[in-house]
Write a protein that binds this DNA or RNA. Structure first.
Length: 449
DNA sequence: ATCAATGATTGTGC
DNA sequence: GCACAATCATTGAT
């Protein structure tokens, strides 16, 4: 403050240029007293003033201090300052002040919302717990697994949260300190230059804006950190778990028994998901509304279809295996059905006999399939269709009481279901349509039911 | 450490 | 909105 005062005294030219006030106030009492003089007198006065100004640098510091004191003690000073303040407000300040009322920054609002949603900002521990709970809920409500998986995530999140809060606090503290400092400075300065309360207010708001822009950066980087954390911990791809053996078996069974049309309906998917209890350990981090299980089943079938199609040879063995499995199942089922039906007169089966085979003789069938490994299409197809035909077979058997030994080794699984371009879409041949022209084993069981 | 298997995602076309 | 194809990222066996 004193420094500044001294500056004002030692560089009057500058001061006078910047603040005409100072020039006016700088008029010594004896000069001001000559107001009523005539023209020559005025010229004389002005000459005096100019002289004083020109020689002010020659004055000693003490003299300058004395002048300053005189200035500050002048009785007209407060009135003059208030007028000047008023003028200031009425001119530039009022215009600028009006512009200060700006709407809340949408970007900042987005950041705030996100931080709140992530539990970074908001209430202390509760926010974090809520977020964790939300994450757990989003994860499909799987049990211990998830809580363990998320504990690390939560720990990291709370770390971010802590850093965020300490930084925020630091900024706020710095902002407050700086604000009070500036306010003190301005208050001090208001003794030597006209400063209205509004001006101080404005300055404070400027400071706050500057600091809030820093805070925004902090928020932004916090958001980024959270996003990275999320993608790191909650990205399903990173958290991939293989299905249980049982689940894979169930899915494979379905797939190979519906090989001609491996597109499970929504209900089928749901049921498969339920049977496989896929949700428990699988994918979890999706929207709360997302049907994870079905989605997962869809993924599985999507992958399966594409991979099967890509390399059918590779899946032959698997196809055989599941064909056998389903055949055995069917055999049991049919055997039971036969027993129950107390069949008599094993006559020729229905016209669809071309697609039938010796179901009860599952052992032989299995042997055959093993021998036929090289040509598993037929086998897989035969087996694949067994299950889907069990019901109809039961029906047939009940009616006829018989079955034929139609398991010819030459039945062809025309990769048929796969169209020329490799798609399944064209293979929508209705089930039960077993054209006589087809190979004996070409059972079409498009059980899309 | 390497590599095949595999669940999930992304981009594209219908 | 679904299916497909390509791709990513992880798992598990070697």
């Amino acid at each position: 403050m004193d420094d500044q005062s001294r500056m004002m005294q030692t560089h009057p030219g500058v001061s006078l240029a910047g603040h005409s006030v100072q020039g006016g106030m700088g008029l010594p009492p004896h000069v001001q007293g000559h107001e009523g003089a005539d023209g020559d007198g005025r010229k004389q006065d002005i000459g005096d003033i100019l002289h004083q100004i020109m020689t002010i640098t020659d004055q000693s510091l003490d003299e300058a201090q004395a002048k300053k004191h005189a200035l500050n003690c002048h009785r007209m000073k407060p009135a003059l300052f208030s007028v000047l303040c008023e003028i200031k407000e009425k001119t530039g300040l009022s215009i600028r002040g009006a512009q200060e009322e700006e709407p809340p920054d949408p970007q900042l609002m987005r950041l705030d919302n996100m931080l709140l949603a992530e539990g970074v900002s908001g209430p202390e521990k509760g926010g974090g717990a809520a977020a964790a709970a939300a994450a757990a809920a989003a994860s499909g409500g799987s049990g211990s697994d998830n809580t363990a998986e998320h504990s690390d995530y939560r720990a990291k999140l709370s770390q971010i949260r802590q850093i965020y809060h300490t930084e925020l606090e630091k900024y706020e503290q710095a902002c407050n300190e700086f604000t009070t400092h500036v306010m003190n400075l301005l208050r001090e300065q208001s003794r030597t230059r006209p400063i209205s309360p509004k001006e101080i207010e404005r300055m404070v708001s400027i400071i706050h804006r500057k600091f809030s822009s820093i805070q925004m950066q902090l928020k932004q980087s916090t958001c980024e950190a959270v996003m990275i954390l999320r993608s790191r911990f909650l990205d399903a791809r990173r958290k991939r778990r293989n299905f249980s053996k049982q689940a894979t078996e169930i899915l494979n069974e379905y797939f190979y028994s519906h090989l001609s049309n491996p597109y499970p309906s929504e209900e089928a998917k749901e049921e498969l998901a339920k049977k496989c209890s896929i949700t428990v350990s699988q994918v979890t981090i999706k929207g709360p509304k997302h049907k994870c299980s079905e989605h997962t089943v869809s993924n599985w079938f999507g992958n399966k279809r594409i991979r099967y199609k890509k390399n059918i040879g590779k899946f032959q063995e698997e196809a055989n295996l599941y064909a056998a499995k389903t055949a055995v199942n069917a055999a049991h089922a049919v055997a039971a059905a036969v027993q129950n039906s107390q069949a008599n007169s094993p006559t020729t089966p229905t016209s669809g006999s071309s697609g039938s085979f010796n179901l009860p003789n599952s052992g032989d069938m299995f042997m055959n399939m093993q021998n036929l490994n090289g040509d598993s299409y037929q086998v897989s197809q035969v087996g694949a269709n067994v299950q889907s035909q069990v019901d109809s077979l039961r029906h047939v058997i009940n009616q006829t009481g018989g079955y034929s030994d139609g398991l010819g080794g030459n039945s062809l699984y025309s990769p048929h279901s796969l169209s020329a371009n490799g798609g399944w879409q064209d293979a929508t041949t209705p089930s039960s349509v077993t054209s006589p022209t087809e190979g004996p084993g070409s059972v079409h069981s498009d059980t899309s039911n």
